[in-house]
């Protein structure tokens, strides 16, 4: 269990934790865009920069991303040194030039004292900050229907050939992790549309609402999901669980629980 010092506060974290986790445990506020608890750290947005030093180091500390730097014993972390703040400010300023109309970026800019972008504003404003959360979520699902295309300033997130992605199952994982709401989707008449593809929805056997796409169900089945897990929507599953728990707490037999399912 490494113990480190974040902005003067001593904090002990489990082995394998990151500096970001340690800093947050110590009460420091560090902005992030490309970080998500459920996904591998990526280190792309560069907002979570901190300055570290170790006992015995001389000179200036090293600037690293806290989201993927391992919390090591004895590490001294400064989350808002002058260089860190200045660098973070440049990053936010650049993001504002890229995404001038995006509320999340505007808020970050305000928090960093930026009124308007110091650089040439993107002639084709976008809400995509290229945090890579969507593609990582899609990879994590084991689907990999979308990916980054091209490189450098022309980098974008897209399905293959910019056509409706054949591998997509319409699970919405990408849209749900997107921090700016850039990934558009819609649902109507038992159909869900995302990335230009239309998916037939399967209805919940409890409440009758459409709750997952047929492609999603097929995908889950192919990976060995039990049929009963696909019948109910999350709300109905929770309700059923609650009913079971109530029954158990009233001392009713386990048979009742079995009957309920």
């Amino acid at each position: 269990m490494p113990t480190l010092r974040v902005d003067g506060v001593r904090v002990t974290v489990p082995a394998g934790a990151t500096v970001l986790a340690a800093a947050r445990a110590a009460g420091a506020e560090i902005p992030t865009l490309c970080h998500h608890e459920g996904l591998e750290p990526w280190g792309g947005c560069r907002l979570c920069l901190v300055e570290i030093s170790k006992p015995g180091w001389t000179g200036e500390g090293k600037i690293v991303t806290s989201c993927n730097y391992p919390a090591e014993d004895g590490l001294v972390v400064r989350t808002s040194g002058e260089r860190v703040v200045a660098t973070r400010r440049v990053v936010v300023d650049l993001l504002l030039a890229r995404c001038p109309g995006t509320p999340l970026v505007q808020r970050l800019a305000r928090e960093h004292g930026i009124e308007e972008a110091s650089y040439e504003v993107n002639p084709e404003p976008t809400d995509c900050v290229l945090c890579g959360l969507c593609t990582r979520a899609c990879d994590r699902m084991g689907v990999s229907a979308i990916a980054s295309v091209s490189r450098g300033a022309s980098r974008a997130i897209a399905p293959p050939f910019n056509q409706p992605p054949p591998d997509c199952i319409g699970c919405l994982a990408c849209a749900e992790v997107c921090p700016t709401g850039h990934i558009a989707w819609s649902e109507a008449d038992g159909r869900r549309t995302i990335w230009g593809r239309v998916f037939e929805m399967q209805r919940c056997e409890g409440c009758g609402r459409p709750h997952l796409t047929a492609a999603q169900a097929g995908w889950a089945r192919a990976r060995g999901a039990a049929e009963q897990d696909l019948r109910l929507c999350d709300a109905c599953k929770r309700e059923q669980l609650a009913r079971t728990l109530r029954a158990v707490s009233r001392g009713e037999t386990v048979a009742a629980q079995a009957a309920a399912s």
Binding site: G43, G44, C45, V90, L130, G132, R151, G152, A153, R155
Partner: peptide, 21 residues
């Protein structure tokens, strides 16, 4: 370098483009 940046991180992708401008 602007052409060769991979585009993963913000400062290199966006910053070199702005410097080039």
């Amino acid at each position: 370098l602007t052409e060769e940046s991979c585009g993963k991180c913000t400062p290199c992708r966006e910053g070199l483009k702005q410097l080039l401008a």
